[in-house]
């Protein structure tokens, strides 16, 4: 008896407390920047695609929902010919972001991805690519890699000596 009355009293007190729920979708919650939501492909500081088509996101994906095909331009820069994520399979685990060696693939705090037609959950590269650098600024993979691409000759990357003159006899 006493216990029931106590419960009713506590419930009554809740009438005067602040609401925890919000009126979604009229009112939106603020998600932290590292929240794992929709996946995007970002660009490097020079506005070029960051993705180099290394397939590491695809192989890290536990539900195998990423597929791509790597190709390269005439100067040897790798990029994905197509890049597809089947969001109807994605579990937003973030393994792809962890695997990405170039900060290209990132999860952003956008969770509003509902569709009436499941086919619309298949995102291609054009749907995934954003214009900015996402969460990680300043990194350009090709400046660190040894590979030569347009605008970056052999030996002009970070922490690189100029190419060896193999005909030199100097010890």
């Amino acid at each position: 008896m006493l216990s029931s009355l106590r419960s009713m009293w506590l419930t009554f007190l809740h009438l005067f407390q602040k609401n925890i729920t919000i009126e979604y979708p009229e009112e939106k919650s603020v998600l932290p920047p590292r929240y794992r939501g929709r996946i995007v492909l970002t660009r490097d500081p020079d506005k070029e695609e960051r993705c180099v088509g290394c397939y590491l996101c695809a192989v890290a994906c536990p539900v195998d929902c990423i597929s791509l095909q790597a190709t390269e331009d005439e100067h040897g820069r790798r990029y994905p010919e197509f890049f597809r994520i089947n969001f109807s399979r994605c579990i937003f685990c973030g393994y792809c972001e962890e695997a990405c060696p170039t900060y290209a693939i990132q999860l952003i705090p956008d969770v509003e991805m509902s569709e009436y037609d499941r086919q619309n959950m298949v995102y291609e590269k054009e749907d995934l690519t954003i214009d900015g650098q996402g969460k990680y600024h300043g990194y350009n993979f090709y400046r660190e890699a040894g590979l030569a691409i347009k605008g970056k000759e052999k030996g002009s990357g970070h922490n690189e000596e100029p190419p060896v003159d193999i005909k030199s006899l100097i010890p």
Partner: peptide, 16 residues
């Protein structure tokens, strides 16, 4: 055993 992309390789044709 680590073959990737099974659920999205052909998703452009049909998501099923």
């Amino acid at each position: 055993h680590r073959y990737s992309g099974r659920t999205s390789m052909f998703a452009n044709h049909s998501v099923s």
